[in-house]
Simulated scan of single mutants.
Amino acid sequence: MRTRIRSAAAVVVGASALSALALPAVQAAPAGPSAPSAPSAPAGPADDVQGDTQISNVIVNDGKSIVVGSTGKASVTVKLTASDPNGISDAGGILYHGADVNHNDWGVTLPSCGKHLVTAYTCTFALKSTSARHFGVSKNAQAGTWKMWAYAIGADGDYRFRDPAKTFKVLRATKLTANAAPEPVKKGKTITVTGSLTRADWESHKDIGYGSQSVVLQFRKAGTTNYVNVKGIKSTSTGSLKTTVTAATDGYYRFTYAGSATAGAVSATGDSIDVR
């Protein structure tokens, strides 16, 4: 069995592999003014390979953006396939925000995949929002593009480090409301649609108004299933929304927001209007 591992990328095979990754356990950032310290970089190069160990089919959150509410917590599932002709001793990785795994401001460590003496094994890592372990963020500046550093270790001592093995989005959750009035209303009269757009603040753990954002008013005619665009408006500095339309037929009005580079998309629940 080959056991030689370059000293620059020293990794302990088996259950202790994560000891080479000087990162805190997966946990939320603490509440309060003190920010968490950035995770330490893994030992050795961030992108390196020895032998024929491979990493493939990396999937974070089923390929969808991770949308995180004001608590800063979210449940995330990560999958990767580790392969080696002699079997897998261990595999795992780090989800992080930063230029690369050696230059990050926050990250979470995946639990160990463990030993699987088959030529290819798909590891599934579940980061659940519990008091002990969850995907956590603490600064609004951490919204946007995240990356995953991944490793796989063969049973023969071969290994593969990949950075990034995957890029994905971590977004601040948004909420949207809509209210159409008056109700009922006479045909041809004015309907006023109001609402508000808020965005999760990971630092204050509150939802705050999201200003100067483009929002679309949509209408769904009663008895149909599809909404159509009516007009676009922008939220005020406090996230408030207000516009008017002419009453024509029964149906439902709602606002919808397409999201941004740091905030998730959202649609309000449709509010019914009775036109007489």
Rank of each mutant, 00 (worst) to 15 (best):
Y257W: 06
T177M: 04
T224S: 13
D48A: 15
V228Y: 08
N229E: 08
S235Q: 11
I208Y: 00
A143N: 03
T81M: 00
I233C: 10
A180Y: 01
R254L: 15
T130A: 08
K186L: 12
S16N: 03
L117C: 04
T167W: 06
A265Q: 08
V228C: 01
E203T: 13
L18M: 13
A74H: 02
N57S: 14
G223K: 07
T236D: 15
A15M: 05
L241P: 01
A248C: 04
T198K: 06
G188C: 12
K115F: 01
K242E: 10
T238C: 08
D271A: 12
W146V: 14
V137T: 08
T130F: 02
S37T: 06
K139L: 12
K64V: 07
V78A: 11
G154K: 15
S138L: 07
K234M: 13
T124D: 08
H205Y: 00
G87H: 05
V11T: 04
F135V: 13
A180N: 07
N102F: 04
S196E: 10
V230W: 00
V216D: 05
K221N: 11
M148C: 09
A265L: 00
Q27N: 10
V230G: 03
P182K: 13
T224A: 09
V58I: 08
A38Y: 00
V215Q: 02
V266S: 03
D48M: 09
R220E: 10
G44R: 00
A126F: 06
A178W: 05
N140E: 09
G264I: 07
K169C: 08
I5V: 14
S138A: 12
T224H: 06
S237Q: 10
T246D: 03
Y257D: 12
G223P: 03
V185Q: 03
L95K: 12
A248G: 06
G232A: 14
F161I: 02
P164N: 10
T236C: 10
G136C: 11
S138D: 07
K79H: 10
L110V: 03
L23M: 04
D158I: 12
D84L: 12
G195A: 11
T71A: 15
V108Q: 11
D271P: 02
G44H: 07
V11N: 04
W149A: 11
V185C: 05
R254E: 06
S19L: 15
T122N: 01
Q218M: 13
A258L: 06
A155W: 05
A126E: 07
P30A: 15
G72E: 06
R254M: 14
V11K: 10
A120E: 03
V26D: 13
N179S: 14
G32D: 11
S65N: 14
D250G: 12
K115S: 15
V193P: 01
Q213C: 14
P36G: 13
D163Y: 09
A247H: 10
L80N: 03
G63W: 08
A150N: 10
A25R: 00
A263E: 09
R162T: 12
T256A: 14
V60D: 06
I5R: 11
N179R: 09
G98C: 13
I66G: 10
K189V: 14
A143I: 02
S214R: 08
R220M: 15
F125G: 03
